[in-house]
């Protein structure tokens, strides 16, 4: 299962250069982990980063820096955390953050649950969104952009089907109403810059419940 819908190259460059905020980084990272094409792009950008960092002028370290480093490596390393096992039926997402978020999920509306993953400053946040079969997210637009990676199932948005691992970005000009149509429920990892703006009565009921 290889994703068909990918982030634009700006996102991949930002990901590799380390300039994405943590909320977005999580969502782009979820896609990259299951997408050899994008992982390849990122490998190239990272290789560029390696050459550039290698070519930077050396800045003098503290005079005891090497001695300190040699002392630190003698200390026992903290135990490595085992990567959390993936969730059955989901793509191989960044498991630790996602699994702990899933345990905090709450039902926001019939068939819809939300679980905050990262709540950053300036209204940015990332969250898991679970939607049951046949359910539409109320029509909405965004202040700022919305990044989505499908972890399980599929949804339809603006005539396109997004399946497991697929990535979808909508900016604030887009007013949309994603629908879960295919088979079972759908779980997405979402990052937003700011709150969504409801565009109909259902959305106005939905919005305070979900608080997204």
């Amino acid at each position: 299962m290889t994703p068909r819908r990918h982030p634009i190259s700006d996102r991949l460059i930002e990901y590799a250069a380390g300039s994405l905020n943590p909320e977005r980084r999580l969502v782009v990272g979820a896609h990259v982990r299951v997408c050899p094409a994008c992982a390849g792009e990122i490998a190239i950008v990272e290789a560029v980063g390696g050459v550039l960092i290698d070519a930077l002028p050396a800045v003098e370290m503290h005079e005891d820096a090497l001695a300190l480093a040699l002392a630190r490596i003698e200390r026992p390393a903290p135990p490595r955390r085992e990567p959390a096992p993936g969730i059955q039926g989901w793509i191989d997402a960044p498991a630790a953050a996602v699994e702990s978020a899933r345990r905090r999920r709450r039902w926001a509306a019939p068939g819809v649950w939300v679980a905050p993953v990262i709540g950053g400053p300036y209204g940015r946040r990332s969250y898991l969104l679970g939607i049951g079969p046949g359910i539409s997210v109320p029509r909405h637009t965004h202040l700022g952009s919305e990044l989505v990676c499908v972890l399980k199932g599929a949804f339809e948005d603006r005539g396109e089907i997004y399946g497991p691992g697929d990535f979808c970005e909508s900016d604030e000009d887009v007013e949309h109403r994603p629908r879960v149509t295919h088979g079972g429920d759908c779980v997405c990892l979402v990052a937003v810059d700011a709150s969504l703006v409801a565009r109909d009565w259902l959305g106005r009921i939905f919005q305070p419940l979900v608080r997204i």
Binding site: P22, R25, L26, G29, V32, R33, V34, C35, P36, A39, G40, I42, A43, I44, R80, R81, P83, P94, A96, A97, S100, I118, G120, P121
Partner: peptide, 21 residues
């Protein structure tokens, strides 16, 4: 930002890459 501390390698596990790359 008082965010959860993640292993620096946790999110960098990448799929197999094409040989050319």
């Amino acid at each position: 930002q008082r965010m959860k501390h993640d292993d620096p390698f946790d999110e960098t596990i990448a799929p197999d890459l094409p040989d050319a790359i």
